[in-house]
Simulated assay, not measured.
Amino acid sequence: MFAYVVAAVFLALFGAGVLRDRRRFSNAVHLGLAVTFLCLGLLAGLQGAPRGVAVTVMVVVLLVLALGPVALAGLLCANGVQMVRKEGVRPANLLSLLAGLGILGVMALMTAAVVSQSKTLAIVVGTLLMVLGYVSFLFLCFVGYAFLYGRMRIRRDADWVVVLGSGLTGGRHVPPLLASRLERGRQVYETLAERREVDRIPVLVTSGGRGPDEELAESHAMADYLVERGFPADRILREDRSRTTEENMLFSKALMEAERPGSECVIVTNNFHAFRAALMARKAGVNGQVVGSPTAAYFWPSATIREFAAVFLEYRAVNLGICLGLVLMGCLAYVLA
């Protein structure tokens, strides 16, 4: 019963947080805690269930705990190899492979601790599992809420559609990843425009400056891409100074405030980047919802890990502090052993 009460409290906090501002990482944590305590309550309730049902559920849970990490590690390693083949050997493309190898490494370390019966190794493994458990919980919260956030309805009262740049190929050409954002931006623009008065038709902002290996600013290549495909040139505003997502937000905000102070916007990026971009928009004071465009399935695991790592470090004081506290607990256990 206690677990259900705690789950209800966190669910209420989640609901209040979403109503206050959808773009808060605390919403993800509250939802994750609500689901966790609900599951604990359901497991505790198995004591009163028929024996056959209880045994079946426990067997399934144990199988998931035992085989789940192995399957996950295999899938991540396979995805990492695919990423390297398709996208090349770069640090960002190795994340899923490294995550898969890391899971296998932890499993090997656990096996060594059991076989060797070493108390020191057991404490090291236990401490590592506590830290990984905390990080994994946050990762699941991030993925779960990002999934929900990406499916929220587009706000109909926005005056702006801001498409974030992501780099050009060959110095001037729009790559498929960026083209996906632009096509999604066009869809959002058309959705907003069909319900607006003539004097309040939205404006689409292409946001992206010129990189060191680019012949022109991303925003100009993005605008040209849209115009060549029939988009009205007079409904495009180009933000051509930004080099990072944070600057995308700040410089686009300045343009929007200069034209229509206090207006709202819909920001378009890729789906794996949407929730983190929403957190950035909130931090920058941009009054906007973020929506995602489709991304190739093989690209998603490494990209999601990268996005989570950036969010984790954004709240480094809390997260690293908790991880350090868990390590100190392990050190204390070693001293007392």
Rank of each mutant, 00 (worst) to 15 (best):
Leu40Cys: 10
Gly32Pro: 10
Phe37Thr: 01
Arg23Lys: 10
Leu13Gln: 06
Ala12Met: 12
Asn27Cys: 14
His30Lys: 05
Leu33Met: 13
Leu31Cys: 14
Leu11Asn: 04
Leu19Asn: 14
Val35Trp: 07
Arg24Pro: 05
Val9Tyr: 08
Arg22Asn: 08
Gly48Glu: 05
Leu46Pro: 04
Ser26Asp: 11
Asp21His: 00
His30Asp: 13
Phe37Val: 01
Gly41Trp: 05
Gln47Thr: 10
Arg20Phe: 11
Gly17Ser: 08
Ala34Thr: 05
Phe14Trp: 14
Gly15Leu: 11
Leu42Phe: 04
Leu38Tyr: 04
Gly48Ser: 01
Asp21Trp: 04
Leu31Asp: 14
Leu33Phe: 11
Phe37Arg: 00
Gln47His: 12
Cys39Gly: 15
Ala12Ser: 14
Ala34Phe: 03
Gly17Ile: 13
Gly45Phe: 02
Phe25Lys: 09
Leu38Arg: 03
Leu31Phe: 13
Gly48Pro: 02
Leu46Tyr: 01
Cys39Met: 15
Phe25His: 09
Gly15Trp: 05
Ala12Asn: 08
Gly17Asn: 09
Gly45Arg: 00
Leu31Pro: 08
Val29Phe: 08
Gly41Asn: 05
Ser26Thr: 15
Leu38Met: 09
Gly17Pro: 12
Leu31Ile: 14
Phe14Asp: 01
Gly32Cys: 10
Phe25Gln: 02
Leu19Met: 15
Val18Gly: 01
Leu42His: 01
Leu40Lys: 01
His30Val: 03
Val9Phe: 12
Phe14Gly: 04
Leu11Val: 02
Val35Gln: 06
Leu40Met: 14
Arg20Ser: 10
Gly17His: 10
Leu42Gln: 05
Leu43Ser: 02
Leu42Cys: 08
Leu40Glu: 03
Phe10Arg: 05
Val18Thr: 11
Phe25Thr: 06
Leu11Ser: 10
Leu40Arg: 07
His30Cys: 15
Asp21Phe: 09
Gly15Ile: 12
Gly17Thr: 13
Val9Leu: 14
Arg23Phe: 03
Arg23Tyr: 07
Gly15Ala: 13
Arg20Met: 08
Ala44Trp: 00
Gln47Tyr: 09
Val9Cys: 11
Gly41Val: 10
Leu33Lys: 07
Phe25Pro: 07
Leu33Ser: 10
Val9Trp: 06
Asp21Ile: 09
Arg23Asn: 07
Leu43Arg: 06
Leu42Asp: 00
Val35His: 02
Gly32Glu: 09
Phe14Ser: 04
Arg23Ile: 02
Phe37Asn: 02
Ser26Leu: 13
Phe10Ala: 10
Ala44Cys: 03
Phe37Trp: 05
Ala44Gly: 07
Leu46Trp: 00
Ala34Tyr: 07
Leu19Thr: 09
Ser26Val: 14
Phe10Lys: 03
Arg20Ala: 14
Ser26Gln: 14
Leu11Gly: 08
Gly32Phe: 01
Val18Asn: 04
Gly48Arg: 00
Gln47Pro: 05
Arg23Gln: 07
Thr36Ala: 15
Thr36Trp: 14
Asn27Arg: 12
Val18Asp: 04
Gln47Phe: 14
Val35Pro: 03
Gly41Cys: 11
Leu13Tyr: 09
Phe10Thr: 04
Arg23His: 08
Arg22Pro: 02
Thr36Asp: 10
Arg24Val: 06
Leu42Val: 09
Leu19Gln: 12
Phe37Pro: 00
Leu11Ala: 15
Gly48Ala: 05
Ala34Glu: 04
Asp21Gly: 10
Leu13Trp: 11
Phe37Lys: 01
Ser26Phe: 05
